[in-house]
Structure formats: C-alpha cells, structure tokens
Simulated assay, not measured.
Amino acid sequence: MALWDFIETHDLSRALAGANTRPVLIWRQGLLGHLLTEQTHYVTHWRRILSTVESIGDAIAHRLLRAPDDQRSRAARMNWQMRDAVSSGTLLATARGQDATIDALTFPTIWRDSDIGEIEYSPILAAARMTSRLPATVAGRVLRLINALPGRETSIPAVSDAVIAAANLDRSAPPYAQAYEYAKVFRVTLGLDENSPFLPEQWLDHMGVLVQDERLGEKTIDAVAAWGPQNGPAIIINRDGWFSSSPNGRNTSLAHEICHLLIDRQDALPAAEVMGGRVDVAVEQRARAFAAEVMLPRAVAGASLRQAADESGAVRAVRSLSNRFGVSHEIVARQAYNSQVALKPTVFERLRQMVSDPSRFNP
C-alpha cells in the first residue's frame, strides 16, 4: 500500500485521465530531484526539475485560456496561479500528512522561520515531514524547539568542503563504504590517529554548534538537528531516546548528526534531520556507520578483540574500549565484527550476545 500510494502521488502520467502513457515518477530528496522512467533513473538539482514542471503547468494554464470558460477551467487556472499562497500551518500539516485544523492545536502560529515554504531553507518544514509518524503533540514540541533556536555563525561549511573534496567519493558506492572513507578523512583532518578518542561535543562547541538537551517523552527520537539560515546550526539531544539517554549513546548520537552536518546538508538534508524520524534509509545508514567509525575505528576494535583468548578476555576488551572511546558495548562489538579480523569462536559468540540484532551478526 505504501508503494501504491507513492506511485499514485509521484507518477505524472496518472494526471492524464483516460490516456495510456508510460509512467514518469518525480520526487524530491532535499536539494536533489529524482526522475524515474522505465529506461532510466536520473538525479539532478531539484530546481531544474521544478522549473521544467512549472513550465509545463504554465503551458497548460495558457491553453485553458482558450478552452471553454467553464467552472472546471476557471478553477484549474485559479489553483495553479495560487499554488504558492498557502499558510504555514497548511504547509506543515501537508508535510505531516495531517489535517491542518488538528495540527493547529499543538503547533505555534508564529514562526521565526521566514522560509517555511522552502524546504531547502526551512528546518521547521523539513522536521515536520520527518516527524509525520509521531503524534502531533510530540511533533509540535520538536517544531517549537527548532523555532526557538537562534541563528549562529559556524565554520562547519569549510570543514565540510575539505572532507568531501579529500574523500572524492562516488556517491553510487554503498552507504557504509562512503561512511568509512568520510570518517577516515575527517579524523585525519582533525589530526587524530586511530588510537585517539574523538570528543564530539567538544568539537561541536569549537565549531559554534549549539548542543541542547531536552526531554521529548518519546523513545524513538534520539536527536534533532537544524541548520537553516534562522535556526541553528544546533543539535537537540533527546534524553528520553533509546540510545541518547545514556552518556555513550549521547556521544554516538552527536557523531551521527555531525555526519549530516558535514555530508548531507549540501544535498539530501539541507535544513534539518530527526534521528529516528522519517529519513532516507541510505542516508541514515551512512550516518550510523560514520558515527561508529569516527568514534571507534574498526581497525582498533578488531586488533583489540583479536587478542582476546576467551569470553572473559572479550568482555574486558569491550569494557576497556567502551570507556576509552566513549561508545556503547554494541558499537565495540559491531566495529570488531566489521573489521573482518579473525576472532576466536568463543569471543565471536560473546560479541554476538552484545548486539541488538544477533541475526545480522554471522560468521
């Protein structure tokens, strides 16, 4: 049903009632636009696709001027001409897939964000879409927090440009492969060797990024990041989150958001991110792998666990790495596993018991 709804919403050929034509799907991912046909999947800047679609709409509206002056023609022209005259409340409710009158009960009526109609500049609009699966009360709290964030100067764009240029990655590479390379380049840029811990909050403070702790009363959300012109850059840590509620989980959540700040603000996530919300799967996979690798390099975890002789040795090694690098036991276990070093069977089995999904932890 989700796939059917997506096709019904994004296939332009569905607008040609009564005509038999091949599907042409168009959808948006941050600053990127996707065009999918039976022959190709084309990705470009969203503005290019939007400009083309608007020119088609203008041509149709011009033809309607010569059509019989009936009620449907007038309504179609009027709707097209007034397509941008939409209130902030309606925009946010539409992004959440909700009724505007319902969301108005929990959402503010006055927004600091003057670009709320432009998702590439509006963290509030972006976050509204990402919280569409959450109750309106929780989403409203998230949006109010973003709305209250002050704008700040930061030097992150310069670091972002340096990391992306040095990595020189093909974006068609698997998300985890991209993440490992970005994390490696980022640590080199900071002058950190493999055995040096990374302190995410300290680095964010140095970069001028606000870190704010809040209680959202919702376990599925670990963090919210915003970097629009008027709101942020800032990271809101949810102290009620599954992972962010612990000190080590908080570190990893911050590192996760650092990936989005460095890598995704130029295309997939130009304004905001809700960790645990409705975000592209590949983008989240990359951020999770980046966070793990930048906090604890796989080579370090693998080398340490390879020396463990038995279960008790594995437990000692995991605790030592966890305390030293500020990560959870599960991150240590997964990084040792991802290092692909040969582990003793008893050590491997003990690590397997430390992860939340042992079915994906196989020899």
Rank of each mutant, 00 (worst) to 15 (best):
R63G: 12
Q335A: 01
V279A: 07
V279S: 03
R278Q: 13
D11Y: 05
M354L: 07
A282I: 10
R133C: 12
T106Q: 13
A272V: 05
G326I: 00
A95I: 03
N338I: 00
L269C: 11
Q285M: 12
A303D: 10
L36P: 11
T40L: 13
V355S: 04
G277H: 01
A2M: 12
V355P: 07
N238M: 02
V332L: 02
V86N: 09
V318G: 03
I221Y: 01
E38N: 14
C259H: 04
A333M: 03
I110M: 13
L343H: 02
S253K: 01
P108D: 13
A67D: 10
Q29S: 10
A15W: 13
T131G: 07
A2G: 15
G277N: 06
A85G: 12
P297I: 01
S356R: 07
I236G: 00
L25S: 07
A299R: 13
R324N: 11
T137S: 14
H10N: 11
V159F: 09
Y182P: 00
N20K: 14
T189A: 14
L36I: 15
I221P: 00
R133A: 12
Q81D: 10
D205G: 10
S320G: 11
G249H: 00
D99L: 09
A93Q: 02
A139I: 04
K344G: 10
V274G: 01
R48V: 15
D222I: 02
N195D: 15
A223K: 01
F6W: 11
N338V: 04
A17D: 15
A308M: 01
R286T: 10
V315I: 12
S73E: 09
S244T: 04
W27N: 08
G302Q: 06
G18F: 03
L261Y: 01
I156H: 07
W4K: 15
F107H: 10
A126P: 06
G30T: 05
R74S: 04
I7N: 12
I331W: 00
D240Y: 02
A291P: 02
P174G: 08
A317I: 05
S73G: 04
L91A: 06
D280P: 11
Q335D: 05
M275S: 11
E311H: 06
M275I: 12
Q71H: 14
T131S: 12
R306K: 12
A317F: 02
P135C: 05
A104C: 06
F198V: 10
A19V: 13
L204K: 06
A59M: 07
W4A: 15
P108A: 10
V86K: 09
V300N: 06
A162Q: 09
L343Q: 03
P175W: 01
P175G: 08
R129F: 08
L25K: 08
G140I: 02
S87Q: 07
S322D: 04
T90E: 14
Q353Y: 06
P68Q: 08
Q266R: 14
R77A: 06
M130D: 12
R141G: 11
T94I: 08
G140N: 08
H329C: 07
P197T: 10
I236D: 01
R63E: 13
V327A: 02
I258N: 00
A303M: 05
A225H: 04
T220D: 09
N79A: 11
V318I: 08
R83K: 08
L35C: 14
N147H: 05
A15K: 13
P68M: 01
R306A: 10
D84C: 08
P297Q: 05
S55L: 08
A75M: 09
